[in-house]
Design a protein around this nucleic acid. Sequence first.
DNA 1: TCTACGTTTAACATGTGTGTCAAATAACAG
DNA 2: CTGTTATTTGACACACATGTTAAACGTAGA
Lengths: 115, 115
Amino acid sequence: MVKQLDDCLSVTFGALADPTRREILAMLAEGEATVTELTAPFAISMPAISRHLKVLEGAGLITRSRSGQHLTSSLRSAPLQEATEWMERYRQFWSASFDRLDAHLRQFQPGREGP
Amino acid sequence: MVKQLDDCLSVTFGALADPTRREILAMLAEGEATVTELTAPFAISMPAISRHLKVLEGAGLITRSRSGQHLTSSLRSAPLQEATEWMERYRQFWSASFDRLDAHLRQFQPGREGP
DNA sequence: TCTACGTTTAACATGTGTGTCAAATAACAG
DNA sequence: CTGTTATTTGACACACATGTTAAACGTAGA
């Protein structure tokens, strides 16, 4: 029953997990852009960018609209809201129980790096 | 130069992109637990859970400490803070420009489901 | 020291993601 | 209609993620 939301979060976080896609979102935050424009700053091919855009669109993070020959992409907000809410739940929990947790952890954890 | 942070976000979002791992985080939010305890509610094997825990630890989302035979896992907060900050940047932008965007989008997007 | 328990590692199968280049589609201009 | 530009799709290659089972490791206790 919560499966639907769960999957939605997977798609959202999955889309956000790729640096190129986050870079694309950053570019779109400065205004909508065509695929060609979005491809320019990257060292990868246009088909690759096109696929990234498809992933972002599938996650509902952008929308696309054709104006003449150009297909412009623009940002959408809804999924981020959901993902942020999910994370806020944990952030709040963690902030609340941090002191207790922190003290507890310290006594077991000498260091975090290991071979 | 921002590459380091970028990679950190990839790891964080990547860890969050898996439903099993989010489920594990939800369980740990109710208190620390051993690998055996964390494996119980799932239909997958303990080695699989062990790997998920390793991913979560790699993302800094949990810490682990041995107490006797048991290896207990507990939540950490730092990476979520970073990821939330990243997303907040976009949420704010999107909220601000939502009206303008929304009107623009409506005229191009008849439906979001595909075959 | 031998045995049992809890957990991880090794080796492997398999599916999915990300990139490539070449060809196909879509809209526009002569 | 033909050609040009913008973008996507197809076919492939390769890497990585996730699951499995079997064996190894680490700690506790007889």
